[in-house]
Design a protein around this nucleic acid. Structure first.
Length: 484
RNA sequence: GGCUCCAUGGUCAAGCGGUUAAGACAUCGCCCUUUCACGGCGGUAACACUGGUUCGAUUCCCGUUGGAGUCACCA
């Protein structure tokens, strides 16, 4: 049978990398086998709905290259694909009533106060409630009367209090729990909407989803879903619970706080290809040692049996490295297109930005790095003369002053300020002086940049700066060294 | 706290009874070099702890410890 997977987000904001990874794995599992990948919007919680969040989902999936075969915008015969629209078809209520008929569910009229009285206070301020099946004992007549009186109700799953329930996960194997541990969770809320727990099962089944792929925070509720499948007499799908993605403190990535949504990363200057590549490796590894993959290559390679079980720390440092790899591999024009805004942010003077871009291309990890790297072209920063001292170059304030003084007339006389010509001049000086290259290059580069590190050598910098500015900066260097 | 899951270097992670326990990021050192960077080379660094099973456990089983998740009319 053809594999069908689905990504079923709720429109509550930006997609963090954990969600995106779920979507990616769902996509890859389907595509690896030539199956289809579906998008379903889970908006049964009207209170949490965030305006524009659905658009973010579309935009993110599209940017990441995760094209869905079916979805709200692409009917594949299993629609509607938005739960709030599915509600209108009456499907959830119909199935809930079927369960009531079977004795697998029941009406519950308990109000908030009674529920609150069931709460048991436990550590960390967490309140735990186990419903006591109070309304299960209501007679058919009592239920009818309550319904007729218009009393608000919910529909609850009726779980057995004895025995065990076992389900199979493709990665975690068989997991068994005591039925007594299973709370009678709410299937239909008092507003008539289904809960996620119920809608999910009904939708996955009626939409012929073959592989339910989701984060393992759902592992503990999976037995209840299994009970639902059993109650309906439906064949459960294959489950693939994904290891958790955590922050550096090993805590589950929060939707709020932290800046690990896909869009945040984009804003921080990461490339979509690098992000996708990186999150593919968050909990999965290929057979080979390769790490750089295009999406198509991932489809080829992705075997979900190689997904690991232990949680994964989202390591921004390694993402930065991977991003730098992608930047280095970028076509120059494409790179320039993305780099230009940052170059212009740092430089307003008429300088050769393309040349500067080329310098910076192999040295940045994310685009915003550019600003700090090239701002010295715009204006010579304040700097400490201590920078002229470098033990490996065998330079210090005195030697630098001497070199700059001696080199100044040569540069003043020089007409050709191309990198090669400048280098030839300096090399000639070095030879005549009988010293190491760095002995003269270090002070010049320092004088001309005022920086400890630069994206290029002294002569390249002078070529871009031009004669006038280069000389001014060297004179300034001499001035500083003299007064020091 | 109950339940569930997880456990190889700082991080990701290979390994699926016998290995000098890969590789990547980070870190450190060296080389190269028109500084730094890039690049090249190399180093430091791990099987959480007990018992078992076995001729032999990182690998299988039990327990301990540690970590995480979950316990809503949220998804």
């Amino acid at each position: 049978m053809k594999i069908r997977t689905r990504y079923a987000p709720s429109p509550t904001g930006r997609m963090h990398v954990g969600n995106l990874r779920s979507a990616l794995y769902e996509f890859l599992i389907a595509k690896h086998e030539g199956g289809s990948f579906m998008l379903r919007i889970e908006d049964t919680d009207q209170e949490r709905y965030v305006e524009g969040a659905t658009e973010i989902i579309y935009r993110t999936l599209e940017k990441a290259g995760l094209k869905h075969d079916e979805g709200p915008d692409k009917d594949g015969g299993y629609g509607p694909y938005v739960q709030s629209e599915r509600i209108k078809t009456g499907i959830y209520m119909k199935y809930a009533k079927e369960l009531i008929e079977k004795g697998e569910a029941y009406y519950c009229f308990c109000d908030k106060e009674r529920l609150a009285s069931l709460k048991t206070e436990v550590v960390e301020g967490k309140e735990i409630t186990i419903y006591d099946k109070h309304c299960l004992s209501l007679s058919k007549e009592e239920v009818e009367a309550n319904l007729a009186a218009g009393r608000p109700f919910v529909i609850r799953q009726n779980n057995p209090s004895e025995g065990t329930t076992t389900f199979h996960d493709e990665l975690y194997g068989d997991i068994t729990v005591e039925n007594a541990e299973l709370d009678d969770m709410i299937l239909i809320k008092s507003d008539g909407f289904p809960t996620y727990n119920f809608a999910n099962v009904v939708d996955d089944h009626t939409m012929d989803i073959t592989h339910v792929v989701r984060g393992n925070e759902y592992l503990s509720s999976a037995p209840k879903y299994t009970r639902l499948y059993e109650a309906f007499g439906w064949e459960p799908p294959k489950y693939v619970h994904l290891p958790l993605v955590t922050d550096v403190n090993h805590k589950k990535l929060a939707k709020r706080g932290g800046s690990t949504s896909f869009e945040d990363l984009l804003e921080q200057g990461f490339l979509t290809e690098a992000i996708v590549n990186f999150i593919a490796l968050l909990g999965w590894s290929p057979e080979s040692n390769r790490e750089i993959f295009t999406l198509d290559e991932l489809i080829q390679e992705f075997d979900y049996h190689r997904i690991s079980k232990s949680p994964t720390v989202f390591d921004l440092v390694k993402l930065r490295w991977m991003n730098s790899e992608y930047i280095k591999a970028m076509d120059f024009d494409a790179f320039y297109g993305m780099a230009e805004p940052y170059l212009k942010k740092a430089i307003t003077k008429e300088l050769d930005l393309k040349k500067i871009a080329a310098m910076v291309k192999t040295r940045i990890e994310v685009f915003p790095d550019i600003v700090e790297m090239v701002d010295f072209f715009e204006a010579l920063p304040e700097y400490d003369t201590a920078m002229y001292t470098h033990k490996k170059m065998k330079t210090n304030s005195e030697t630098s002053l001497e070199v700059l003084r001696e080199i100044l007339p040569l540069l003043e006389a020089q007409e050709d300020y191309s990198n090669d010509a400048l280098y030839a001049t300096l090399a000639g000086y070095v030879e005549q002086k009988g010293c190491k290259n760095g002995y003269v290059m270090w002070p010049i580069r320092t004088a001309v940049s005022g920086k400890q590190t630069t994206p290029a050598g002294a002569t390249e910098i002078m070529e871009i700066l031009g004669k006038e500015e280069s000389l001014a900066r060297i004179r300034r260097g001499i001035e500083l060294l003299q007064s020091a």
